[in-house]
Every structure is written in structure tokens, then in C-alpha cells.
Amino acid sequence: MFEFCADPSILPDWQWFACYLTSGTHLAFYRSFLVVILLLLVVAPLALGMGMLGALAIRAHFLPLNMVGRGYVNLVRGVPDIVFFLFVPIALGQGIEWVLHQINCPDWDQPIRQGNDWLVCREAKMPPVGASAWARNVYAFSMAVVAFAFVFGAFVANTLHGAMQAVPQTQVETAEAYGMTHAQAFRRIVLPQMWVYALPGLSNIWQILIKATPLLFLLGIQDAVYWARELGGAKTSLYTYPHPDWRVWYFLVLLCFYLFLTWGSEKGFGWLTLRMSRGQATAEGERQRRRRAAA
């Protein structure tokens, strides 16, 4: 990075640290924080979508759909989320390979599961044989995204269902008295008003989601935890930058990063709650209306 970094062993302390903290592996470490943020930004809308579908399924009058919705929410709730984080990627990966195998190699006569081996034909391998490292990373990352969306979708479904119930029933009845159909009443009355009730729950789930992101490490993705372990471990004089066991400092940095993230999103949700309350038939909405009327 800097000119003077050619031979770090003779540098004074501050220059040594300047070189050390800008080495290639450290730049990868800093990029891995962006991976965490990227995961959050991708998972949030997907989980919201899953949650919406789940909440609609719970509300459905059609019994099998209703049971699927309830089963989904309660199953995810009763089992530690880490089980799903590890189960979904591997199960989904095998599922995709199985489907590709059926399509591409219909005349394959051996069983796919032989003892402890999982054997599909060459064309059915995912990611494909010879795929670049970049493609493999994207594949692993999208598997993680699906797993997170599955788990957090269930949490969101429960919150959204509660929020839909919280919209005053009389308003829905009024809408229907004006001749709106059930779907119209839902779209025009329930949907716009439910968010203010859902927000406290959603903010909570967002915080849980932030705190679940370090588990990416267990899915073999080179995230911040991976790099903290790699970089922090004691380095002998074989390395360019030898140092003793510094893992505790690296994890302290991670701890502060997450504290900042949760603190910041708490502030963000505080602002959003105020914004969402505008024009609502709640105490906060009423207070804002009075203040505007007085001004």
C-alpha cells in the first residue's frame, strides 16, 4: 500500500502498523464487513416477502394452507435457528442436484445415495464442474440467503399476522358495508395501517437478524469472523508481519462493529416509528396532528 512497506521488519511502530493494517488480507477483512451488510440488505426484503406469504397463509380460510402457515411459524420457532442455517443449504443443494440429475441423466442406473456418498452425474453438479471461485462464492452466499430468509420469514410472518389482527375490526366492517370485497378491504384498509403495529416487532426481528449474521462463518463463507480468526492468530517470524495471539483485539473490533450496527438501527427504527405514526389513529399520530394544527 505505502512506499515504505517493502521491508516491514525494520520499520518503527506506527509505520509497521500502517503497513500491517493495509495488507492484502486486511483489505479482505474490511471487505467482509460489507458482505455482512450485503447479506442484511438482501435478506431483509426476502424475509419480508416470505413473512407476508406466511401471514396470508395463517389468515387463509382454506384449511390446508392455514395449517402450512401455522406449521411453518411454529416449527421454526421451536427449533434453534442454527439447525435451519445448516440444514437448508445442504438439503437445498442436494435437492437441486437431484432435480438436475433427473433432467440431465435419465438413463443413470445407479442409486444417488450409496452408503454415505451422494453421487450425481457430472452434468448435475452444482455449482457446475469447473466453475470459477467467484461463482462458487456466489452460490454459497445465495444458499445462506435462502436459509436466513426461511428462518426470518417465519418470525416476520408471526409479527405481520399479529399486526393484521391489530387493525381495528370495525374499520374492515365499515369498508365491507360500503360494498368493498374482502380483498379490497384488505388492500385498502388493513395493508396501509398494519405497519405501525408491526414496526416494534419488525425492529426486534431486524436486531435478531443482525446478531445472527456471524453464523455465516459456519456456512463456510469468508466473513468477518473467518478473517478475525485468520488474522488474529499468532504469526511466527515466517510471516511478513509476525505478532503474538491478537484474536481478542480482532473480536473486540467485531464486537464494536455489531454494537454500532444495532445502536444505529435502533435510532433508525425510532425515526421510522415517528414517521409511520403520521396520520394514524394512535396516540402518537394524534399528538403529531395536534402539534401540526397548533403550528
Binding site: 443482525i210 445472527a212 449474521t213 469472523v225 480468526r229 488474529g232 484474536r247 473486540l252 455489531y258 454494537l259
Partner: peptide, 22 residues
């Protein structure tokens, strides 16, 4: 309360373990 609620348990495990080995 802020520190322990604001950071992931997973990171807390790593942090305390690497502190304990020192």
C-alpha cells in the same frame, strides 16, 4: 445491558475465549 444485548452471542463466545486463553 447495552453491550451484551447489542452484540451477537457468537462473537461474545469468540471474544471471551480468546481473552481466557491469554
Amino acid at each position: 445491558v447495552f453491550v451484551f444485548r447489542g452484540s451477537p452471542l457468537f462473537i461474545q463466545f469468540f471474544f471471551f475465549y480468546s481473552a481466557f486463553v491469554l
